[in-house]
Simulated assay, not measured.
Amino acid sequence: MTYRRTSKVEERMAQTRERIVLSALELVAQHGYGGTTMPLVAGLAEVSTGLLYQYFPSKTELFDEVFKQASQREIDACAAAAASESRPAERLGAIIRTFAHRALKRPKLAWALLAEPVAPQIDEDRLRFREPYRAIFVTVIEDGIESGEFRAQNPHTSAAAIVGALAEAMIGPLALGVLSKRAAQRVVDDILALCLAAVLNHDVKKKKADTGSAG
């Protein structure tokens, strides 16, 4: 007779699995992937190392799940920032500020998500998880083009360029660890100015300035 797990057993296993992942995520946020070991995760999750390996047969599988969950949190935060009813430029700024401030607030975790050397499986997910960010920026850029606030451009190309620039620009500051509030704000302001300059319709700004000076 085949053994079937009861709903209670399934629920308990799901809770244990989630506790393991959350424990690993917290350790990665403190020590990075390199400083997080399976025994450390087991201890924080209050399970035996043997049981941990029953849920995640390898460190790579566990860290890949950590990466997916942590990345999805960041994507959700950026999507929420993009969902306001404000002008496209303001929404673009809100996304960039959200991404950058959250990264600078937890630099070890952001470094792990963006740049820390990892197994090929996680590196592949890094590339795949850039797509939701691009999709968020595409929507905002399309709205900006339609309203005339942004110049005519290929929104997919511009979105990909912004995502790449945003990730690359964060690597240096994240490598320094926790920045002062002033230094962190300067980093965010510089990235935001660069991205806005790339997409804004400068002809509209010039016309408004000329109209103002003529008046």
Rank of each mutant, 00 (worst) to 15 (best):
A175N: 09
G212V: 02
N154R: 06
Q69D: 14
A193M: 15
Q121V: 09
P173Y: 09
P39Q: 00
A42P: 11
P155F: 04
H31V: 00
A24N: 00
V28P: 10
T16I: 04
Q30F: 01
A70H: 10
R130F: 13
D143Q: 12
V21A: 06
C195R: 00
A175C: 02
N154D: 15
E74H: 11
A82D: 05
V66C: 14
G35E: 15
A159W: 10
S147Y: 02
S180T: 15
D190K: 04
A152V: 08
R186F: 15
V21F: 00
R97M: 08
A112W: 01
A198R: 06
E10H: 01
L166N: 00
E85H: 07
E10R: 06
K108G: 12
H101T: 15
V204P: 12
V140S: 02
A29Q: 12
D125K: 15
R19V: 01
S23V: 02
L179F: 10
A184G: 13
E26Y: 02
V140T: 11
S48L: 02
C78I: 13
F56L: 09
K205Y: 15
T60P: 07
Q15N: 15
L174M: 04
Y33A: 07
R73K: 14
P57Q: 01
G164C: 05
L27E: 12
G215Y: 11
C195D: 07
K207M: 13
E61R: 08
Q153N: 03
S23W: 07
R128K: 14
N154S: 08
A42I: 02
A89C: 02
I171P: 06
P39S: 02
T37A: 00
A175T: 06
L40Y: 11
A83Q: 09
P155L: 08
D210T: 05
K205S: 12
L52Y: 09
K8R: 13
L194K: 09
R126N: 14
V188H: 00
I96W: 03
F150Y: 11
I136M: 03
F150C: 09
T98H: 11
E124M: 09
A80Y: 03
Y33E: 02
P173W: 06
P132F: 09
Q15H: 10
K206W: 14
T98I: 06
V140W: 05
R134V: 15
E90C: 12
A198I: 10
G148K: 00
I122A: 09
A94T: 08
R134A: 05
T16R: 13
A159R: 02
E149W: 03
K206Q: 13
T16Q: 11
A42D: 06
G32M: 01
V41N: 05
G43P: 10
T2R: 10
A80W: 05
V118L: 14
E131I: 14
M1H: 07
S58K: 00
K59F: 02
A80E: 04
I20Q: 04
Q30P: 04
Y3V: 13
A159P: 12
Q69C: 07
S71F: 12
K208Q: 05
D143H: 11
A103H: 14
Q185F: 05
K205I: 05
K68H: 03
L166C: 13
C195G: 01
R73W: 05
P88L: 01
V178Q: 02
W111V: 10
S23D: 06
A79M: 11
G212P: 01
D203C: 07
A193E: 12
K108Y: 04
D143C: 11
